[in-house]
Computed example of a mutant assay.
Amino acid sequence: MTKTVTMTIVFQAGSLNYGEGIANISELKKFHRGNGEAYTYASRQSLRYDIVRLGNELFGWNLNTVDKASGVVQFKKDVTIEDSVEMDLFGYLKTDKNSQKRAAVVRLSHAISLEPYKSDLEFLNNMGLASRIGADPNLAQIEQHQSFYCYTITIDLHRIGVDGEVELPNQEKAKRVQQLLDIVKLLNRNIRGRRENLSPLFVIGGVYDVANPFFLGKIRLASSPRGWEIEVAPIADTMAQTFAGKPVADETRIGLVSGIFANEDEFAQRFAEKTGSVEQFFRHIAEQVQTYYGE
């Protein structure tokens, strides 16, 4: 039976991903929309990197899986998904006479800012070091952007732990998904001397019969006299959609951190039985995963 977890997550952080830059200016990764606004983002590759980093730090995921024996840096030929949670979740490509590949089971979108970038710059120098030897400091400027960000993650449960002739026990499949959920709950990123917190302030999703990121692109941020709000209308319309005669709302849950968004009461009233804390959301998903794998 096909089942897919999909969840769209909102978090707040600053200056998450830099590009090459020009001269002594470090530029944030960003793109422009048709209305002229610029939005920064953390690439899906950067999110993947930090998920795998935490998988290794917290759960001992095996990272001794790469070599350059074929002339390019890639996963070792003799390593399988049984040896590597990373390869199981995020796929691989092994180029050789007989190339092997595995499409990602866990798919990530970019984490895109919900607030436009306004060209803020920070001026830097190394005065502290230079003054020790009576030298002139080096100068630099880096772009800065503090914002709410949003990304979507999907997990094809029926493909976890299955790759060709290799199939892991259901207990191991459930364990790997649970570890991933725990990582997403406390995801963080180390960048330029900072540890940014990417853990969810708002999350919406569930376990569905179809592999579709329902709430990707449906999260809108609005400013009101009371503070920041997440617009309810696009979420309500999405939940009213049906697949095979079944409303999306039936399997959808919402989790939020109290005190962050000014209209949290609106969610509690409109989606009363489906709204709770972030912890309650992840507990519900974990229970659904355990049920799917027959635990």
Rank of each mutant, 00 (worst) to 15 (best):
N188K: 15
I142V: 14
R226S: 11
L124F: 07
N212G: 00
I155G: 09
L186R: 14
P116R: 02
G193A: 04
V105N: 12
Y208K: 02
L216T: 11
R192N: 12
V105I: 09
V207L: 07
I230A: 08
E165G: 08
E115D: 12
S109T: 15
L180C: 04
S199M: 03
L139E: 08
V203G: 05
E196V: 09
S199H: 10
L129C: 06
S119V: 07
T152I: 04
I133Q: 13
L139T: 08
R132K: 15
R220E: 15
K173R: 08
L139F: 15
K175D: 13
L129S: 15
Q171C: 00
Y117N: 06
V207Q: 01
I219P: 12
L129T: 15
S109R: 06
R194P: 00
I230K: 11
L157P: 10
E122Q: 01
D120R: 05
P116E: 04
L124W: 10
Y208W: 02
D120E: 15
S109I: 05
A140Y: 01
S199K: 08
Y208T: 03
D182N: 13
W228D: 13
S224E: 02
S224N: 13
L121C: 02
N126C: 01
D182A: 08
S113Y: 12
R194L: 11
E167S: 13
V207F: 02
G164E: 05
K118H: 08
R159C: 04
N188Y: 15
G161V: 11
R176L: 04
C150W: 08
I112F: 01
A104R: 14
F202S: 08
R220H: 14
K173D: 07
N188V: 00
K175A: 10
F202K: 06
Q171G: 04
K175G: 01
D136W: 00
D136F: 02
V166S: 05
K175I: 06
G161T: 01
H158F: 07
Q171I: 11
G205I: 01
E196H: 07
D163Q: 00
A104I: 00
V203Y: 03
S224D: 10
L108G: 09
H158K: 11
I142E: 05
N125K: 00
C150Y: 04
N170D: 15
K175W: 05
K173S: 06
S113M: 03
I133A: 13
H145A: 03
P116M: 00
L201F: 07
E167H: 06
R132S: 11
A135Y: 06
P200Y: 03
L139V: 14
Q171F: 02
P213L: 03
L216K: 06
E115L: 10
N138L: 08
G128S: 08
G164H: 09
R195H: 00
L168H: 02
P225H: 01
N212D: 10
V105K: 09
L187G: 10
L216S: 13
R192C: 00
L180T: 09
V106K: 05
F123E: 13
P169D: 13
Q146W: 08
V105T: 07
Q178T: 14
K185S: 11
